[in-house]
């Protein structure tokens, strides 16, 4: 009876969310978003875990293995996370070029 990995996933998500909400710097915000997304990796892998099972790599014989689908999903998740962070950082650079600031509140004041 253990829900600890799920609680950990929720905790990582909320910590990242707090960073996003309280962020005063677009670079910091991108990093917090990555932390948030890490919570989803933990959740996916925790759901696919099976007691006493090994990685789903079968050689030479068959053995109990964890769910390969959530691992494939996590792989997708990580790749998307990396590319989205690159896009956000490029947007932050563009915003800095326009307004001279990476603070979202100061950038909002420019609005025009």
């Amino acid at each position: 009876m253990s829900y600890l990995p799920y609680a950990l996933a929720g905790w990582i998500f909320v910590v990242g969310l707090y960073g996003v909400v309280s962020s005063r710097n677009l670079i910091h915000l991108a990093v917090c978003l990555t932390v948030m997304q890490s919570g989803t990796y933990v959740l996916l892998l925790a759901i696919g875990y099976k007691n006493g099972a090994a990685a789903p790599i079968f050689r030479p014989s068959h053995h109990p293995a964890v769910d390969p689908v959530v691992q494939a999903l996590t792989l997708t998740d990580i790749v998307v996370s990396v590319t989205v962070v690159a896009l956000i950082l490029a947007l932050a650079l563009a915003a800095h070029k326009e307004s001279g600031s990476v603070n979202p509140e100061e950038i909002a004041d420019f609005s025009g």
């Binding site: 253990s2 829900y3 799920y6 875990y49 099976k50 390969p68 959530v70």
Partner: peptide, 22 residues
């Protein structure tokens, strides 16, 4: 979380089916 199965008690068919047939 209350609706999820216990950690380590995975019982969904899709992952098990893939492991069996891949």
């Amino acid at each position: 979380l209350v609706g999820l199965p216990d950690f380590g008690h995975y019982h969904w068919p899709y992952g098990n089916a893939l492991n069996a047939i891949a």
